[in-house]
Amino acid sequence: MTAAFRVIKPGFQTTVQDLGRFGYRHLGVPISGGIDSFALMMANILTGNETGAPCLETALQGPELYFLKDTVIAITGADMEPRLSGKPIPMWESVLCKAGETLKLGYRRSGCRSYIAFAGGIKVPEILGSCSTFLTAGFGGVNGRCLQAGDLLETCRYAGQRGLLLRVVPEKYRPEYHSPFCVRVIKGINADNFEESEYKKLYNQTFTVTNRCNRMGCFVNGLTSIGTNADPILESYPVIPGTIQVPSSGNPIVLLNDAQATGGYPQIGCVISSDIWKLGQMIPGDKLKFEETNIKEALETERVQNETLRKIGQEYKQRYIYHTRKNTYEVIFDRTIMKENN
């Protein structure tokens, strides 16, 4: 099997990601996976893949790839002004890259992370049930590391490229990545460890994203720090991506996909699942606001988001694996052509 493309320049941090690794958190293995899972799933739909097929996730500065065979791709997420052999190509659309052509992504113009999906999906070994790269422990993806110049990557066999072209995500479904970002938050399990006045500081000020911002988590600073009356020897509790911890410095840490399964700083809140993607599109210096919400609203927004994915998947009448960002159950849609999408 010949490789689909060669990496000429790897970009700032380009890794293979799918929807994550589940079932090993009791061994301290984080879920990893694309942080902006909505963009990742859309890119896969555009290239005829299962929504959770392995893609490239690239941050800040995109890669340069040389195609060795004809491949249909789609780029979603942050705008890195992609060019194919020098000519600008659209995002949120399927594009044919011919053998001998070079795809080049530049520096991000908005957002932080772009997703590049390839028809068939990137072929890397599954480690503990997922192809996602976990950099800290060095496994998954391409030998547990970021892409490097000279890497040759294969894609899985795809039955045919007919019907893959001219796939587009309608404008109204494309998210915008602008500072200030506003994410909705559910009360944290240690919320009782904050005085009412301190607790409110999470919601009535704007935070700034600091330089300590990566796939594990994001340190943000407010004008006033948040005090806690938690025992400094507080026990560790389970956490999830989105958990907002407040260490004694008083500046919150928002955990992301590569974060641990347990953590010891008091948890003031937790960003809802359907807003995590925004956290993946922030860069240092961006502004972040938290907005209090409840479980009911959280489930409703997630339902709406899944509905959008379903609608677009349906339009292309493809066999669409319904992931709700994970590998749980499968819905195979009717093959009849959808005449109208609203």
């Binding site: 958190r25 009791h26 026990e235 389970p238 399964a261 347990t262 479980i295 709700t324 994970k326 749980t328």
Partner: peptide, 24 residues
Amino acid sequence: YGVRDIVLCYSSIGIYFDNSLIYP
């Protein structure tokens, strides 16, 4: 069914599930 992970902590247990299959 619908449960993705169960994590043991010192004095707590975390149960992670798919919220489209199981309501909290």
